[in-house]
Design a protein around this nucleic acid. Structure first.
Lengths: 160, 160
DNA sequence: ACCAGATACATGACATGTCAAGCACTTTCT
DNA sequence: AGAAAGTGCTTGACATGTCATGTATCTGGT
C-alpha cells in the first residue's frame, strides 16, 4: 500500500480540498462561459484591468500581480486582442514596453460578467459556509500563501 | 467599480483561497516533476491505479472516480502507455471495453513518487495548519463538494 | 433474428499553458 | 562612446485539456 503518510484528519482535509477545487473550478467556469462567452482566464485578466486607475498595466507587472508567467499572459493578451477585448499601447519612455488596456468591448464584457461570476462564487462557496468557517478559510490560505512566498524568496536568494 | 459583491471577510476568504491554490499547485507540481519526471496528471492516474485490488480499472470508471472527462483520461493514458507507465488490456465479456493497469515501470514510478508527493503536501500544507484548522478545512470542502454533487445530480435529472 | 438506441472508448481539431529562445531596446561600466 | 549585461516582451515548439464526433460493440424491444 502506498498511502498512510497522512492520518485520517489530514487525509480528509487534503483530499476533500482537492476535490472541492476541481468541482468548484469546473462549475464556475462552465457557468461563466455559458453566460458570457468568457473563459476564466479572460475574466481574470479583464477584472484585473478594470480594477486599477487608468485601467492600464505594464505586461510584466500584471503577470506578476496575477502570478502568471509572462509568456502565458502574452499569449492570452494576443488572443484577447484578436477578439477585441483588450488593446496594447506603447509606453512613453521605454520602447520595449507595452501597456494593456481595456477596449470599450472589454469593459462592457467585464461589467456583464462580474455579477455572474460573483453570484456563482456566492452560491457555490461563500453562502455555503458559516462566518467562522470563512474566517478560518482566510487564515488557512494566508498561512499557506505566506509560507510559499517565503520559500520562493529564499529560493531566489540562493538560486539567482 | 466592479467589486463589492463580497464583504471583506468573504473577499479575503475567496481571494486567498484562489491564491493558495495557484501557488500550492505550482509548488507541488514543480517538486514532483523535478524529483521524479512525473506530471501531476501522471501521478494522479498512477496513484489511483495502485490503490485498488488488482490494480486494474475500467477507463470510464476511473474517469468517473477521478472526476476527469473520459476523453481527457483516454489521451492521458495513451501518453502514459507510450512511456511505458501503464498498459491497456481487453476486458473479458465486453469487446468495447478496456482495462488500464500499471506496468512494472509504472509501479516503480509511483512507489518512488509517493513519498515525494506526501512530503510536499505535508511541508506546504498539512504541517502549516493546526488540527482545528485541518478539521475545518475538511468540513468546508465537504460542504462545497456535497452542494456541487447535488447540483450536478439535479441537473442530470432535468437535462438528460 | 433484427434494428434502434445506448455504451465504451478513441480521435481530430482546436484552445490553452510551459519552456526555451529570440529581439529589440536600456542600463551600466569603463 | 562602446561593449556587455540586463529588461520587457514575443514567439515557436510542444504538452495538455476540451468538445464534438467517429467506430465498434452491446442491449432491449419487436
Amino acid at each position: 500500500m502506498v498511502s498512510r503518510w497522512l492520518d485520517p484528519t489530514e487525509e480528509r482535509a487534503w483530499r476533500s480540498y482537492r476535490r472541492m477545487f476541481t468541482l468548484l473550478e469546473g462549475q464556475l467556469s462552465r457557468e461563466l462561459t455559458a453566460a458570457t462567452g468568457l473563459s476564466t482566464a479572460d475574466y481574470t485578466v479583464l477584472s484585473n484591468l478594470v480594477e486599477i486607475e487608468g485601467r492600464r498595466w505594464r505586461i510584466t507587472a500584471l503577470a506578476d500581480h496575477m502570478q502568471w508567467s509572462q509568456s502565458r499572459l502574452s499569449h492570452q493578451i494576443r488572443r484577447m486582442e484578436d477578439r477585441g477585448l483588450v488593446r496594447r499601447e506603447h509606453v512613453d519612455g521605454d520602447a520595449r514596453g507595452a501597456h494593456v488596456t481595456l477596449t470599450k468591448h472589454g469593459l462592457a464584457a467585464i461589467r456583464e460578467a462580474a455579477p455572474v461570476h460573483f453570484a456563482g462564487v456566492r452560491r457555490h462557496f461563500i453562502d455555503l459556509l458559516r462566518p467562522a468557517q470563512l474566517k478560518t478559510m482566510g487564515a488557512i490560505a494566508e498561512r499557506v500563501v505566506t509560507h510559499l512566498r517565503e520559500l520562493d524568496e529564499s529560493a531566489e536568494r540562493v538560486g539567482g
